[in-house]
Amino acid sequence: MGVTKQPPDLLPGTLDLLILRVLVRGPTHGYGIAQHLRTASEEVLQVGESSLYPALHRLLLNGWVKADWGVSENNRRARYYALTAAGRKQLAVERQEFDRMILAIHKVLNAT
């Protein structure tokens, strides 16, 4: 069918970072997060539900996001995830760490 493609392996921990980043735009439900990840990455990142929801719950457990029931754009009950203050802080930390890591990887790859 060609509808799904095997998503490339993400670096460990990056999914959490990406979710946090998506939520900066405002509270979103799980499907919305997956959609946004796909469109924003121009169809490169296709996150499976079996990794998306555990990741969301991991964030819940750490208190970085909170979840509330709301009504979706098509008038259905949906669970909206929102960033907490601790989540915002965590995003900044992780982002910095990620940049550092990417830079390091680049340096290694570009070394002669």
Binding site: G30, N74, R76, R79
Partner: peptide, 18 residues
């Protein structure tokens, strides 16, 4: 139960998009 409902919603949305 919340999670089940959430996954249900996810599937429905996907179906709609498809």
């Amino acid at each position: 139960a919340d999670l089940a409902e959430e996954l249900d919603f996810h599937r429905e949305m996907k179906q709609r998009d498809l």
